[in-house]
């Protein structure tokens, strides 16, 4: 992501409209013989000033030109803050001033203080649980829509699945509080039905509540990629499997699931990566046992006024996510290659 942004940023100035370059003067690049094509464009355009800037550019350059503005945007809003955080993590806080000498003190503290490692471990655990719960619950829904819903109704179903997104994330989290609370919808219904005597307490203000709330919030993000992967499966492959003697279950495990794996992996990553860094949900429904690493980062930055330590924690969390995601991608790639 970062390198992608930098790549476009580096190229973007080269894509400035060539007709603006005076014919007599050659750009440094052209002199170096780097952009032969651009040179020709300059000559061509000089005879016909009215031509648009993109005319005569190769497809690759047109593509770069198109991608340049979002690339620039990504650099400014992603790479620069990221660099700042990285830099900050190697500085230290000296009461009210920043000490800008390079130090690994923050990392040492982050790795030695048990609380931080506990929070990181809990974040990974919760994110893992959310991911598993979301993907396992999303798969049957995606499967149902792809295989059992009439083709002309599919877009309606997908549309219905996105309905929870019509309201703000915050409101949805608050609603879960209403549902899961001590005198909440769930508890009073179960009590009213005589199923439980005392209200259930393990469903709010702990890690369970975080998992429930996040799994619901990310469900559509998991359903969509899995649905797309299932849609792409040629139905005659499933008939071929049946024809070759396999029943419904084996056809699923030998054909449908392996072919849906790209969608499942996408769903896993889409859910896992943002979940680790979530701090709104743990803050609102997590209680003391449900707090995650992002809450600690926020605390360090805003309350304890120790931005460098917060930055170091953020970098560590980011690296953990990157490594785990990479591991997931590599593992599935190997599995798909050597798969049965």
């Amino acid at each position: 992501m970062i390198s992608w942004g930098v790549f476009h940023w580096k190229h973007a100035p080269f894509e400035s409209p060539p007709k603006l370059l005076p014919q007599c003067r050659k750009s440094p690049l052209e002199r170096a013989g780097v952009s032969h094509n651009l040179g020709r464009t300059t000559e061509h355009v000089s005879g016909d000033v009215g031509l648009s800037a993109g005319h005569g550019l190769s497809d690759a350059k047109k593509g770069l030109l198109l991608a340049a503005p979002p690339g620039l945007y990504a650099v400014l809003l992603l790479a620069v803050p990221l660099g700042a955080v990285l830099l900050l993590s190697f500085w230290s806080q000296d009461f009210l001033t920043l000490d800008r000498t390079f130090t690994l003190k923050n990392y040492r503290e982050a790795f030695t203080e048990p609380l931080y490692m506990l929070l990181l471990g809990r974040s990974l655990l919760i994110a893992g649980a959310v991911t598993i719960a979301t993907v396992v619950l999303a798969f049957p829904i995606a499967y149902f829509v792809s295989f059992y819903v009439r083709p002309e109704r599919k877009s309606l179903w997908i549309f219905l699945i996105t309905i929870p997104f019509w309201t703000s994330y915050l409101i949805r989290v608050f609603l879960w509080k209403v549902i899961l609370g001590y005198n909440g919808v769930l508890n009073s219904s179960l009590q009213g039905l005589g199923i439980i005597e005392e209200p259930l307490t393990f469903i709010l203000y702990n890690a369970n509540a975080v998992v429930i709330t996040l799994a619901h919030a990310f469900a559509p993000f998991a359903i969509l990629p899995i649905f797309v992967a299932l849609e792409k499966i040629d139905r005659s492959l499933l008939e071929a499997s049946r024809d070759l003697g396999e029943g419904k279950f084996r056809t699923f495990t030998r054909v449908t699931l392996p072919l849906a794996m790209p969608g499942v992996v996408a769903a896993i990553l889409i859910v896992f990566i943002p979940t680790i860094g979530d701090y709104v949900t743990p803050r609102l429904v997590g209680g003391p046992d449900g707090l995650m690493i992002a809450n600690m980062i926020q605390t360090q930055f805003l309350k304890l006024n120790n931005a460098p330590l917060g930055a170091a924690l953020a970098v560590i969390a980011m690296l953990s996510v990157s490594l785990i995601s990479l591991g997931i991608v590599l593992a599935t790639m190997r599995w798909m290659k050597g798969g049965k």
Binding site: R242, D243, L244, G245
Partner: peptide, 27 residues
């Protein structure tokens, strides 16, 4: 279909794209 002594060559061939040739033939 999976219990009939018939086998089919599909119009689209329906060769499993995630498997090797040998895995397809031995399916």
């Amino acid at each position: 279909a999976n219990k009939r002594p018939t086998n089919m060559v599909f119009q689209s061939y329906a060769v499993f794209p995630h498997l090797s040739v040998a895995q397809n033939v031995g399916f």
